[in-house]
Design a protein around this nucleic acid. Sequence first.
DNA 1: GAATCTAATACCCGGAAGGTATTGAGATGG
DNA 2: CCATCTCAATACCTTCCGGGTATTAGATTC
Lengths: 303, 303
Amino acid sequence: MDLRTLRYFCALVQEGHFGRAAAKLGIAQPPLSRQIQNLEQELDVALLHRIKKRFEVTPAGLLLYERARRLLDGADQAQTDVRRAGAGDLGRLSLGFVHSTAFTILPGIISRFRRAYPDVELELREMLHNNLVPALESGSVDAGLLRPPINSRLLQVSTLIREPFLVLVPVSHRLAGRKSVNLKQLADEPFVLFSRAGSPLIHSRVVEMCLRAGFTPSTVQYADQIHTVAGFVGAGMGVGIAPATVASFNFTGLKCLQITDRPAALPMALAWRTGNASMLLRNLTRIARTAANAWSPAEPPKP
Amino acid sequence: MDLRTLRYFCALVQEGHFGRAAAKLGIAQPPLSRQIQNLEQELDVALLHRIKKRFEVTPAGLLLYERARRLLDGADQAQTDVRRAGAGDLGRLSLGFVHSTAFTILPGIISRFRRAYPDVELELREMLHNNLVPALESGSVDAGLLRPPINSRLLQVSTLIREPFLVLVPVSHRLAGRKSVNLKQLADEPFVLFSRAGSPLIHSRVVEMCLRAGFTPSTVQYADQIHTVAGFVGAGMGVGIAPATVASFNFTGLKCLQITDRPAALPMALAWRTGNASMLLRNLTRIARTAANAWSPAEPPKP
DNA sequence: GAATCTAATACCCGGAAGGTATTGAGATGG
DNA sequence: CCATCTCAATACCTTCCGGGTATTAGATTC
């Protein structure tokens, strides 16, 4: 009992006529007659009540017809779904991300991906960097948004955006009126710094760029996240250095100034396991690059 | 995409190994490899991620596996169900019956049939004789329990039981002590008669047997149903003649006497449309005959 | 590096599915 | 009432697909 035979039987029941059913199926009438006979023989059931060169469908035949219809519909559906899954516009994709991406590149990726692939279930999981990397390696997460450097030979990394740093000063600060500033001008300022524990990468980058400018920042306060840093600076506790995303939040009480030293920007990357050929992933990386191109640090996330 | 191919693919996914899957399927390994390749080609989807002589199932493959499992299960189920339907122990059967059978042969048939064929939905429809016959002819009812004569060339009739008639007398009656009675002895009695309108067959039979015994029954009261007749007799309104089933009700105030004249018994038959080869119907007729053999007029219906 | 295991490839064979021609039984219409 | 038409079944042929065996190529293991 294969699907072709069932298709034949359904056509026959629908048409009520061997010749028309055969024509509809694109075959000749004798093969259809034989297939139906074989089916009846295989099931050992009279599906048709043949009476005077015509026939009516027996109750068993009617039952088979209903079941066969459902099976055929299911098979068609399965086929199209599998095709779609293979093309990457049906399925499930889990995307891990570190907290800071939620304010930069992630929203644009999500909305674009959802629009382009509404039938892909995009599972979003906020994770710490150090948990996300092994999750990617093990395959429990398909793709991850996180900051390089990523030291794993199993993962492929594609940098999406590079966020420049900005200097934050309270509105009352002597430098608040300027558009840009040289780091050396901040040598004697009290600093609100990203903490080593909460944001080790940014912490080291900020300290490093200050050292390169010739001074060690004198820390008045540590903070874990960008909002906290901005809040402290806005409260007049000191100056700060933060990724450019901070400008898009419109915090009150502070000004954002460009840095003439042009220290190395902070990259944000998409990472996935090497050899993952899934079209879902491929589509996500494409979408991510598109979103990255449309992203600008000073503006709120685009659709 | 036919069921065989899906079966192959499922086995492969389950075994995770071409050789073992092929062995399980009872075929050699090369044909299996080829079938899977053909399937991938037909769907234009990579179902397996082949990596170093081993493979893992892609998301699309996993989706196909799930769908295929369901389809295969559905096909198996359909096959067994259709076989059962063909054998007559799965399906739906409608049985029409006239009121009077509900106290005689019908209960035994129902309980036996339900026990023997629990998966056949037995649809019971009480109908008037004159509606039941055309319903049988049109096929809207598969079988009918009713009293001959049935004048329809389209229907086949099988008499199940023959109910003798009994005489009913009030307990205070002069004949109440006897076991049997000759009809002639009732010539001058007031009669409670089945009405011509409500029970034409019994009415005519009773009148006929009285005429044959040499008298016309003088009617004191008409009644439509057996309960009413028995009630009136029990109330002392007169004597009556009724089918033997009356004895099984244990009405108070009356006695049931056999009739030495032995008038023709009242038949009850099963009827169905000629040429209906349904196994459901065949099973029902067999059950009905069994139930009829076990039936006795004086006792309450047997299981 | 030899042995072994696994999937893929090459090639052959048999059977099943499809096609054409025909039959035979009913229905139809003049 | 007979000729014709219709429709499913039968007979027979052809083709192609599924399965088998033998072999190859690549990877792992001892």
